[in-house]
């Protein structure tokens, strides 16, 4: 009988996590307070706004995020997309306070963080949020 309850519990937990992640997926959050950018990230900055996408080898949705962001950057003036594989750069993610991949940081050319997105970004809402910072 306990097994039945364990199974129901597991199903409930899976449902809760699924709903939570669906709601949070692609959500745009405010930038963290100014942090000293790690060198591998700073090296990627371009004029205008750079979308720095943090990925790992083990991350399947990172590929989808790449498709969305690359397309957005190709069609938007002053927006660049760069991907950084952080599989072997734990110090970078710790310093940036990033827990999951893909996470995308929008950074200006002087390294100021404008916003960040967890999960696969939603193209339209991301563009709307970036508008005030684009030339």
């Amino acid at each position: 009988m306990t097994g039945v309850w364990a199974l129901l519990g597991a199903l409930a937990v899976a449902g809760a996590i699924g709903v939570l992640l669906k709601v949070r997926e692609g959500r745009i959050s405010r930038a963290k307070d100014s942090i000293d950018l790690p060198a591998p990230v700073r090296d990627l900055l371009a004029p205008g706004v750079t979308l720095v996408q943090l990925s790992t080898t083990f991350c399947a949705p990172c590929r989808h995020a790449k498709v969305v962001l690359r397309d957005l950057a190709d069609h938007t003036d002053g927006l660049t997309h760069a991907e950084l594989d952080v599989t072997n750069l734990p110090d970078v993610t710790t310093r940036l306070g990033v827990m999951r991949t893909p996470t995308t940081l929008a950074l200006t050319s002087d390294g100021t963080e404008v916003l960040r997105v967890g999960g696969v970004p939603k193209r339209d809402s991301l563009l709307a949020a970036l508008r005030p910072h684009l030339p």
């Binding site: 699924g18 083990f58 991350c59 599989t87 734990p90 827990m99 991949t101």
Partner: peptide, 9 residues
Amino acid sequence: LCLGCEMYL
């Protein structure tokens, strides 16, 4: 969804 992959970090 692969929980372990996203939480790799």
